[in-house]
Simulated scan of single mutants.
Amino acid sequence: MNKSKDYNRVMVITGAASGLGKALALAAAQQGYDIAVADVQEQAGNQAVAAIKQHQVEAAYFHCDVGQAGGLLQLKDQVMAHFGRVDVLVNNAGVGSQGTVCDSTEEEWARQWQINLMGVVRGCQAFIPQLKKSADPAIVNVASFAAVALAPGVASYNVVKAGVLALSETLRCELAEAGIHVSVICPAFFKTNLVESMQNTDDKIKNQINRWMTKSKYTADDVANMILASIDNKQFMVLCDSTTQWQYRLSRWFPNYFFKQKVKMIKRMFQ
C-alpha cells in the first residue's frame, strides 16, 4: 500500500484527463494516492477528478500545456500550494505523429520536440527539487516502444521518444544518490486516442495503427498497473509484453536481422 498513516502520497500526472493518464490516475487512487490531474482538457480533467474522488482520495485539476515554457513551473507552484508535497511525477502527456524524415514538416518536428520531449524535460526540472524532499520519490517517463523499434514512417515520433528513453537513463544515474527512482515505460500499440492527436496523417497509416491498437493484448488499465508495479518494485525499463521484450533483445543482439525485419514490415504495409 502507498497510503501512510499520516498522509497520502501525491502523484502528479500530465495528460491525465484521458487515455493512459486517466487510467493511471484511477488505479493510483485505488492504492491511496492523492492525484494532481494536469492537462489542457479542462472539462475532461474535471470529470477525471470527480471519478478519482470516488476512491476517497484528494484530487484536483490543473490546466497545463507541457509544450509551453513555464507551464510546468506554474504547475509545480499550484500543486505545492494545493497538496503541499509531491512524491511521484508521471510525465505522460504526448501527441502522435506520422511521416518520414523528408515528408515531415519543420512545424511537426517542433511540435513533437516541444510536447513529447521538452515537456518531459520541463517536468523533471520543475519537480525534482520537490521530489528530493519526499521519503520515497519516483519519476515515471512514458516513452514508447517506438524508441526501440525506430520503424520507418514515424520519424519525428521515433526521435523524440528515443530522446525520452535516453533522458530517463541519464536521470537514473544523476538521481541515484538523491534516492529518486526513475522508470521509463515503453508500450507498443494499445487502445488510446493517439491517432486523434496526429496531424496531417495518411489514412492508410492511421487505419494500420488503429488495427494494431485493436489487436493489442493489453489495455490502458494494464499499462497503468505496470507503471504502479515499476514504482513499487524499482523497475527501470518497462516493456509491456513478451513480443516487445523479445524484439528489444533482437534489436540489441542482432541489429542487422532486426533491421531486415523492419524493411519487410514496411513493404507489407504499402503493398
Rank of each mutant, 00 (worst) to 15 (best):
S4N: 11
N8T: 00
M11N: 03
V12R: 14
T14Y: 02
T14N: 12
G15Q: 14
G19I: 02
K22H: 07
A23W: 11
L24P: 10
L24H: 04
L24F: 02
Q30T: 09
G32F: 12
A38S: 05
Q41W: 10
Q43R: 10
Q56I: 04
V57Y: 07
V57L: 03
A59R: 07
A60I: 09
A60P: 00
L75C: 09
M80Q: 13
R85A: 14
R85G: 10
D87K: 03
N91P: 06
A93I: 05
C102H: 06
N116D: 15
V121P: 10
C124S: 06
A126P: 08
K133G: 01
P137G: 04
P137H: 07
A143E: 07
A146V: 02
A147V: 00
G153H: 00
V159P: 11
V160R: 02
A162Y: 07
A166F: 05
S168P: 05
T170D: 14
R172P: 04
L175V: 13
H181M: 05
V182P: 06
E196F: 00
Q208L: 15
N210W: 08
A224T: 04
M226R: 14
L228P: 13
S230A: 15
N233Q: 15
N233L: 15
S242D: 14
F254K: 09
N256V: 13
Y257A: 14
K262F: 03
F270V: 11
